[in-house]
């Protein structure tokens, strides 16, 4: 990753490094939530202390600070929910998982990474229920690695799009981004992605078109029902 986070954990296995990378990113965001809650609670305390010295309490101001705390608690609960969903991907090594769940988790884990690059991340909901029978942690890691490469290749102001294209007994997950850097990309993330996909009878493809390029992950899948 461009921020160099992973270089410090390079000697450990790619799986552990991935787990560490995600938890570091999520806990970093939780620190922001806690910081806001701490300061908002402190501001309420400041206002009560001023009131003890005769300054009247301002109900509108109190409501504003209270809403700030409520919003952050809700945000924190969402972050913890996503971390919990991610943690449970290691529970079973071989089970059917809805691709929609993978994409929702991927979006939650990568939104901040995209935001830091001023890149818009668009994850298109699946039009069908697509089940993937494999180790969910490995599937998520492969998706994350592919998205990571596309995000790293994108420039500020660009959009990276993730969409699923189911067909018969396979699904293609397409990561569309800028053409530059994708085709020529070589690096540990790409190799990790390739070896993970090889274990699940999947493939990694790259397409190039005018104005953009895409990574495509092909995985064996079962299309259960159309949503539309």
């Amino acid at each position: 990753m461009a921020d160099g986070t992973e270089s410090r954990v390079a000697p450990v296995s790619p799986e552990l490094a991935f787990f560490g990378r995600i938890t570091a990113s999520v806990t970093h965001e939780l620190n922001n939530v806690l910081s806001i809650v701490e300061q908002a609670a402190g501001l309420l305390e400041d206002q009560l202390a001023a009131n003890e010295h005769g300054v009247p309490l301002d109900p509108d101001r109190l409501r504003t600070v209270h809403s700030r705390i409520e919003r952050q608690v809700e945000r924190g609960a969402g972050i913890i929910h996503n971390l919990n969903r991610f943690s449970h991907t290691v529970d079973d090594r071989d089970r059917d998982t809805d691709l929609g769940e993978f994409l929702a988790t991927l979006r939650a884990l990568c939104e901040r990474l995209a935001e830091l690059r001023h890149v818009t991340l668009e994850v298109v909901p699946c039009a069908s229920t697509v089940l993937i029978r494999h180790n969910p942690f490995a599937v998520l890691q492969a998706l994350f690695r592919a998205l990571e490469i596309v995000l790293d290749s994108a420039q500020a102001g660009e959009t990276v799009r993730v969409e699923a294209l189911p067909a018969a007994d396979r699904v293609t997950i397409r990561f569309t981004g800028p053409a530059s850097g994708l085709v020529a990309h070589r690096g540990p993330h790409l190799e990790t992605c390739r070896s993970l996909l090889a274990e699940m009878d999947g493939e990694l493809g790259t397409t190039e078109q005018s104005g953009g390029g895409a990574f495509e992950i092909l995985l064996p899948a079962t299309v259960v029902a159309d949503h539309c």
Binding site: N32, I36, Q39, A40, G42, L43, D46, R68
Partner: peptide, 15 residues
């Protein structure tokens, strides 16, 4: 970029 954090800190510093 955490707007609610810096807004709150500004209020508390000014107090």
């Amino acid at each position: 970029d955490e707007e609610e954090l810096v807004t709150t800190l500004v209020e508390r510093l000014e107090i």
